[in-house]
Structure formats: C-alpha cells, structure tokens
Amino acid sequence: MTPEFISGGPALLMKNTCRLLVIADAHFGAESGFSRKGVHIASNSRERLRRICSCIDETDPDMLLFLGDLKHSVPLMSHQEFAELPQILDTIRKKIPFRLIPGNHDGGIERFLEPEELLPKRGALIDGTWYVHGHMHLPPESVGNLIVCGHHHPVVSLYDEVGCSLRAQPAYLLAEIDEECAGLALHENGRSTRILFMPAFFEYAGGLDVRIIHASKLSPVSRCFDAENAEVFLGDGTYIDRLGRLIKNARA
C-alpha cells in the first residue's frame, strides 16, 4: 500500500486495492467542553466539516475511516453534540460511506450511526493495514502489520540556533513496535510490527510533542516503540528527522 499525506487535514489517503481516507480525532463538540472548563468560543464544527468535505473532494476515496474520538464529551453527550452530530454525519454520508473505530471519547455515539458504520473498539484490518484508535492494548491479530492509530495528537516543534522557530505542528510518528513490551507474540513470519501515530484533525488539539510521547503513559502503546529510530513527518509528509536525534538536539 502507499499512503498519501493530505496536508489540508491532516489526513491520510491509504491506497491499496481501494482508496481509504483516514481521519483521526475530529472531536466534534469540543467547544462546549472548553466552555465547561472556562474557555468560551463559538462552535467551529461547520468549518471542521468543511475541511473534511474538501479532503474527500481532493482525494476521491472509496470510503472514509474515522480513527476514533469523532465526538468530544465524555461520559455524557453534550447539548452541542446532540444538536450538531446528526447533521454532520448526514452530510458526510451523502458524500461517501464511512466507518468509525470508536475511541475513548465516542461513548454514546452509536445512536447516531447505522449499525454497519461502527467497527469494533479493538480495531480492524482494512485492506492490509491495522487501524485502531490507540487508547487500549493492541490485539494479538495486529502483529506484523502496519498499525495506524490516533489518540496521541502528536505535534513537533522545531528549533534553530537561537530558539524555537516553529511551534507545535501536527506531526506523524512512524516507529517499530516492541512486541514484548506491547504484550504481543512475535509474528510467525518474523514480520515486524510498525505503528504510525496520526496527528489530530481537530484544530484546537493541544497536542503532545513527539519527543515526550514515549514517556507520556498516554496509552499502553505509547511506551512500546523504538523511540531512537522512530521517524517524524509533518502533516504534508515532509521528513523532519529521527526522533532520537530530535530529542538529542533539544537537550544540546
């Protein structure tokens, strides 16, 4: 398969036997969540939906896959979500079939979905790639595959001689999984398991610097990859550097 990095997302277009558009962590309804925490801004859902639609138009996929955290409020559904989600999902449905692998923020979303649109929480193998939200232990059958996950909202900041030259850009992190740490058996054919952390689609995501994902304890997988040789890419696929070197440079 070949991936295409869609910078207008960030989103991924995975091309193999079919074209699959992947979007992680859209967090519809987050604004009312912010409001409860004391930050009051208007809903940006319409703009976020417009971005989804333009990613669809740009890539002409066969299907859209939401990689979890399509909505925001937990444990209760917010008023904003009740009001907005049905229409958002309808708009997408009219353009293209979609699936959701639920994340930790998706409790209760079933009521807005058709049965076939909801995939299992543990993840799913689609067209040769394993997809999962990323907040739980990896299931045994994911081993030996490329795993694409969301949940971690990775970002990268760039530094030059004087200081920080670019702050918190959405970033992809590609790494080898340490199977033992992740509680997986080795693949029977010795195929390695790789994981691609996707940045959040949601524009207000604070993000976790790629340099600290490994120490973050944000998920069972976050500490189970080879950080030294992991590779960091920007939203448009620009290769920045090996994670090991980024960490070393930040300390220098």
Binding site: K37, G38, V39, H40, E203, Y204, G206
Partner: peptide, 17 residues
Amino acid sequence: GAIDQQADYERISIHRL
C-alpha cells in the same frame, strides 16, 4: 469574559485558540 479566570487549558492549543 472569553476566558474565565480559573480556566483549565490543558490539552487545548492556546495558539489555535
């Protein structure tokens, strides 16, 4: 009044905000 005095900004991109 757009941001409360005691607001909790954790995990919000203040720059995008």
